[in-house]
Design a protein around this nucleic acid. Structure first.
Length: 889
DNA sequence: GGATCAGCGA
DNA sequence: ACGTCGCTGATCCC
């Protein structure tokens, strides 16, 4: 043995927890609500530490029992805030991890972790063994000697400070022997160690440089003049008591010696299972990779990586495929494995097929050219089960193939059962509903730039086949759960049919006018260049305007403008701050305009250019299983955030055009969220206003301000309150928004809730429902779980309440437009219309309509949207047509 | 590659 | 600390 590592378990765990538990943070949790942030960070730290060890390691913990220090000084560690529950829960998990990792741990009644570490460290050091101590507690610096190095964790846990006798001297100009006296003189508020009142670090160092020790200081106590001398003389007892308290017991009676700290060889799979249980995916993958690297060294062992309990057949030729399909004219699960998430341009890596009993991997190039298989896919009589039906559908559309009659989709089912898991991958979703063991994607394919098919083909053959078998196996359970939750209709009548609508929309795409795009690009480039010059001139130097850091330096240090808000890392330079500085310096308006144009240029002109396919269209992907509320999202490109609010930005819409002889038709719901609120909360006056077709913000203003003639400012404020209410607004932010004092804002809110008392009631009821059930639901029984609502952390609880109030409104509106889309699509299909739905932007639909269907669609689309769902208020829609998106006002 | 800031939409 | 849900780009640091 040549080296020993000692870790202060409590202190590292505290750091691990607080590294991510800043106020307002959402802590890492498993899907079952078990907190894991501290475990995760602790393991990461241990991994770092383990890289530096040669196998001898021990983690020491404090116990909850009083120690000798408490006997000597009752106030020891008094006044310390109680450990947060979220951290306390994780202590057993951290200890369990150490056990699984084969790392020795020790705690001992009557002693602190410090004492255990001190005793072992000194014992080893005396035998000339090198020791590394890890902690965040500066007290341990007293252990430093020629053999012992102390590593202190810094705040973010990313860096360590290393202390040797030399570096200690450099920093404090004291020897390591004096560290105890230093702490004793200074005291330590966190442990409630008194020290000498009025003596801080600076004075203590000064005194020790002169007198070396506390003992010698008191030999010369009369030489010290002034107030300081008085204090020192008066507090002699405190000083000695403090010294006693801070002195680590390096002769604790431990039941083992430093020699018995060797790391035990472990089964990696145990540790992987433990991480899987805690859903710590990163750690699972890391461990698995480490494991694989060791396995690869031994050719014999490499087949251990495949699962012996799972069997499947390989289908690599037409004969076998014909045979299999011929024998399985029955419902099966089908999985298509793609090379990348964007299935429009992805390669097909493999196909899995399973009927529960038999499972197959099919070579994709065989399958896509095999008529028997293709006939099976498009056979409307045979049900199929999938994971992400839309991806398969769109991929097949690109290849001019069809697939029909999907009666179960695992991704959508899981998403409906719990909307927050739609973000997860296949493996995580599987583990949430079963104990089936299936590798993470990264384990099979690697990640980032290195992603690709593994050398060992069996590895991915099995993985893909297994996915198909999982889909089949989980189907009945998931359907059962959906049935229990009254969500079968939502899956089968809304989400699965919607998949087909979305597939068609994505495949249709949206045509781009290249000339218009290039034209706008050039215009913007020129304007941006001119603005850059003006900004550099005003600043007196060139710098990167797009860097908030550099811009902040220019504005607030060089030009000395009055700074507003700060961000975590420096000055805020956002538009609100700039707005306030507008008249302070001529550079500001230039910067604001630069920001606006640079945004349009990079995100929209350049960004969208990069997403154009060879058919001159953009083919977005609507994520159907992502948002927690039930809305869709759109990526590559995001077509749900094309500018509209400023004229400048709105022009971007000119680049999106209808195909030849076609028009774009846009139809949007008017005030759908407020109507939903009026309906579900049964808000009498709101309903009346909608019934009378009033301008809703105007009528709110009339009531809130008690006026008949509403000024535009009053309407604007009422509008802000109407929106704010939907989001569960607070007075402070409403005040910011409508430029009044928080007090006035609170008056508005109070007044608003007087006018619409049912809204107040609804909010109370919803919060109560969420508190009791842990979730809220929409018109169509879509659920959103809100674990935060029972949090003891004020901020998180408030966040939970806002979500509880907002999710049913936003989610019901999402339900409604989804139903409308399914209805509309069905009508168009059944009546052989050429019009196509191509976009959805939360409350509006955009269609591409051939000229001859234009008049019909102008009537039909709004009509279908209106009657999608029957509410106690009517759903109103407006409708516009144009040759490009810009013309849809 | 990930965190941070910024800014676009409903 | 400060209104919901999203996506993308630029910079900066690891």
């Amino acid at each position: 043995m040549e080296h020993l590592t000692l870790v202060d378990g409590n202190s590292v765990m505290f750091r691990a927890y607080y590294a991510t538990a800043y106020p307002g943070a959402v802590l890492m949790q498993t899907s079952q609500g078990v907190y894991t942030n501290a475990v995760f960070a602790f393991v990461n730290m241990m991994d770092k530490i383990l890289e530096q060890t040669n196998g001898h390691i021990l983690v020491a913990f404090d116990t909850a029992h009083p120690t000798k220090r408490h006997e000597k000084y009752q106030e020891y560690k008094a006044g310390r805030a109680a450990m947060p529950e979220e951290l306390a829960q994780q202590i057993p998990l951290v200890k369990k991890y150490l056990d699984k990792a084969g790392i020795k741990q020790h705690e001992q009644i009557g002693y602190e972790a410090d004492d255990i570490i001190g005793t072992l460290a000194k014992e080893a050091s005396q035998n000339n063994i090198k020791v590394d101590v890890y902690s965040s507690d500066r007290d341990l610096l007293q252990l430093v000697d020629q053999n012992i190095t102390v590593h202190l964790l810094k705040k973010g846990m990313k860096e360590l400070d290393h202390y040797t006798p030399e570096s200690l001297y450099e920093k404090y100009e004291l020897t390591h022997h004096q560290m105890i006296d230093l702490k004793a003189l200074m005291g330590d508020p966190s442990d409630n160690i008194p020290g000498i009142p009025g003596v801080g670090e600076k004075t203590a160092i000064k005194l020790l440089k002169e007198y070396e020790t506390i003992e010698n200081l008191y030999v010369h106590q009369d030489e010290i003049k002034g107030k300081m001398g008085e204090k020192i003389r008066e507090n002699k007892e405190l000083a000695y008591l403090s010294k006693d308290l801070v002195t680590i017991n390096v002769e604790s009676p431990l039941p083992f010696s430093y020699l018995e700290t060797e790391k035990i060889k472990i089964e990696t799979s145990d540790l992987i299972d433990f991480f899987k249980e805690l859903e710590l995916k990163q750690l699972v993958v890391r461990m698995a990779n480490q494991n694989q690297n060791t396995l690869f060294k031994d050719e014999e062992k490499s087949d251990k990586k495949t699962d012996k309990s799972f069997s499947y057949d390989l289908i690599l030729n037409d004969e076998k495929l014909n045979d299999i399909i011929f024998n399985h004219q029955e419902p099966m699960s089908i999985h298509f494995e793609f090379s990348e998430p964007n299935y429009h341009k992805a390669e097909l890596w493999g196909i899995g097929l399973s009927n529960g009993e038999n499972t197959y991997f099919i070579d994709p190039s065989i399958a896509l050219n095999n008529q028997t298989f293709l006939n099976y896919l498009k056979n409307k009589e045979i049900e199929k089960y999938t994971f992400d039906y839309k991806a398969i559908k769109v991929f097949l559309m690109w290849h001019k193939k069809a697939i029909h009659t999907i009666s179960f989709d695992m991704l959508l089912a899981a998403y409906l059962i719990k909307s927050s898991i739609g973000k997860e991958d296949f493996t995580t979703i599987t583990s949430l509903f079963s104990s089936i063991d299936i590798s993470y994607e990264e384990q099979i394919y690697g990640k980032g730039a290195k992603k690709g098919l593994p050398e060992n083909k069996e590895l991915y053959y099995e993985h893909i086949a297994k996915k198909a078998s999982v889909i089949y196996k989980l189907k009945d359970d998931l359907l059962e759960t959906l049935k229990d939750q009254n969500q079968l209709e939502l899956l089968q009548k809304v989400e699965i049919p919607l998949s087909e609508v979305l597939a068609s929309m994505e495949f249709s795409g949206l045509l781009v006018d290249n000339k218009e795009l290039l034209n706008q690009k050039e215009v913007l480039e020129k304007r941006i260049n001119v603005l850059e010059e003006s900004i550099y001139k005003e600043a007196g130097e060139t710098f990167n305007i797009s860097s908030p850091k550099q811009l902040g330096d220019i504005l607030f240090e060089k030009l000395n403008l009055s700074q507003g808000k700060k961000t975590k890392t420096g000055y805020s330079t956002n538009v609100e701050v700039l707005e306030k500085l507008k008249d302070e310096h001529p550079i500001i308006p230039y910067i604001m305009e630069y920001r606006q144009l640079a945004k349009l240029y990079s995100t929209y002109i350049i960004g969208i250019s990069q997403s154009i396919f060879s058919d001159n269209k953009v083919h977005t992907i609507f994520n159907q299983a992502l948002t927690t509320t039930g809305r869709l999202s759109s990526i590559e490109p995001n077509l749900q955030n094309i500018p509209i609010r400023t004229e400048e930005g709105r022009k971007i819409r000119k680049i999106f055009v209808a195909e030849k002889n076609h028009y774009l038709l846009g139809a949007d719901y008017s005030q759908i969220e407020l109507r939903v609120l009026a309906d579900i909360a049964n808000v009498k006056h709101l309903k009346e206003s909608f019934l009378n077709n009033e301008d809703i913000h105007k009528s709110t203003a009339q009531k809130v301000f008690h006026v008949t003639d509403v000024t535009s400012e009053q309407r604007r404020q009422a509008k802000a309150v109407n929106f704010g209410i939907i989001y569960g607004i607070g007075a402070w932010s409403l005040a910011e928004d409508i430029h009044v004092s928080p007090k006035e804002a609170q008056m508005f809110i109070d007044r608003y809730l007087e006018i619409y008392p049912e809204i107040k009631q609804y909010m109370q009821d919803t919060v109560e429902f969420a508190t009791e059930n842990g979730y809220v639901k929409t018109l169509m029984n879509r659920r959103r779980y809100i674990p935060e609502i029972n949090s003891k952390v004020f901020m998180q609880k408030e966040f939970g309440k806002r979500n509880a109030m907002n999710a049913p409104i936003q989610g019901s509106a999402a339900d409604i437009i989804k139903v409308a889309m399914v209805d509309l699509f069905k009508y168009l299909e059944e009546n052989d219309k050429k019009s196509k739905i191509i976009l959805q932007v939360h409350d509006e639909l955009i269609l591409e309509v051939p000229e001859e269907e234009l008049e019909e669609m102008k009537e039909l689309v709004p009509a279908i949207m209106k009657k999608a769902v029957k509410l106690t208020v009517s759903l109103e829609t407006s409708c516009d047509v144009g040759k490009n998106w810009y013309e849809l006002k």
